[in-house]
Amino acid sequence: MNIFRFAGDMTHLISILVLLLKIYATKSCSGISRKTQELYALVFLARYVDIFTEFISVYNTIMKIVFIASTLAIVWCMRGHRVVRRSYDKELDTFRHYFLIAASLVLALLVHEKFTFQEILWAFSIYLEAVAILPQLVLLQRSGNVDNLTGQYVFFLGAYRGLYILNWIYRYFTEPHFSRWIACVSGLVQTALYADFFYYYFLSWKNNAKLKLPA
């Protein structure tokens, strides 16, 4: 465990907690893409199937449970909670995320470490995580201005991926046979998706203006 990975896990956790806070405090989920949350729930369920078979560490197991539980809680809240679901931008959150699921599944069947059920699911979860933010970014583009909690949510998610890339670089130089090219390539793609958001986020922060994304 290196500092980059630990910091990455913490910012990932913070991003989910910020989202839970926003929904719980404002009893509103406007500006949040439910499809992105459903994709993340799928990512964690597909990736953590080994939670019962492979014990790596207490930290690892606890974090997996927290990620699955919090993401499912967000999805449940956005679907089931009477008050919250009324504020869901149904007509704006129209990204056809089933294509993302299908594409990730096909890619996982083609490119994986080993052709076993668990490996295919793991590769699927890695590819899906890379594109899961797309419905959220499209929703932000459409809704134009971004309320600061949602902006912070995407910011922390981007920071988590950026820190993980530093973690992979660190591990590449410190561990002789570290090979995680599937996650590295996919992680780079995902971080690139955030790049333009970071650019506008930084501009809005610098000009102390509301975050406006170009339509």
Partner: peptide, 10 residues
Amino acid sequence: LLALLGKDEL
């Protein structure tokens, strides 16, 4: 092995 393949990551 898990660590080498990065499967020890979240």
